[in-house]
Design a protein around this nucleic acid. Structure first.
Lengths: 117, 117
DNA sequence: ACAAGACATTGACGAACGTCGATCTATCGT
DNA sequence: ACGATAGATCGACGTTCGTCAATGTCTTGT
């Protein structure tokens, strides 16, 4: 009682695992970048810096965010660690700017063109 | 002892708040999408579906993920709610596929071209 | 009608996260 | 050297998240 699997339209043999071409560490690294953007405050920070072109210091960001200074510093650190922001010390002030390269790298992950057929 | 502020190279008048052109709810909505992608398992799910073109049923996803069935269902629900995946019931099976439109909408947020000068 | 299978939902638990007040560090002007 | 200020770090708190076992729901075949 052999069955020709190739001729079946509806796969009764569902549940054959499809291969994951993404390593566990690759997925973790990608998720880490999105995790950095998974907070309203950090989205607003990136949004503000994207429109200012020139870097901004921390004190400029605190009022519009409505958060305490330590909290803003915390978010900025997360974004720098994710490679989305750059930090530059100018005297007493710390200036944060967009890491265009990092942003583009994150955007390329969502690029569906060139993937699959 | 008047001071000409416009001629100062270093802004002693730092810390003037820059305006946030993104509403709080807008930032929250954007963050919600990234939050859906802020997990290694969900990144792998999207990655797998991006390469398969045709939707896949849950049972196909469980083995490569190495997670329990309820956990996989949980992740799939999150991705659907974020507008990144579509769900279609075919008999006993539930087929999940990429929501290309949703993915592109998320990617457009990271698009720096057209923003700032 | 009934049993089996695919998937969703619930409840519980530990880990990670966002937030703040308090404190520490570093830089500048006097 | 000192006081003032920008920003980072620490410690603690409540909340959210990822995970699983157990259970529920719905569809299919007998």
């Amino acid at each position: 009682m052999n069955i020709d699997l190739s001729s079946m339209m509806v796969p009764a043999d569902c549940c054959r695992p499809i291969d994951d071409e993404l390593t566990a560490s690759d997925a973790e690294a990608t998720a880490a970048v999105f995790k950095a953007l998974a907070d309203p405050a950090r989205v607003r920070i990136v949004s503000m810096l994207a429109r200012s072109e020139e870097p901004a210091c921390v004190c400029e960001l605190i009022p519009p965010l409505g958060l305490s200074q330590p909290t803003v510093s915390h978010h900025l650190k997360k974004l720098v660690q994710a490679g989305l922001l750059t930090r530059e010390q100018r005297g007493v002030w710390a200036y944060y700017g967009l890491d265009r390269e990092g942003i583009e790298r994150a955007a390329s992950v969502l690029d569906l063109k060139g993937v699959a057929a």
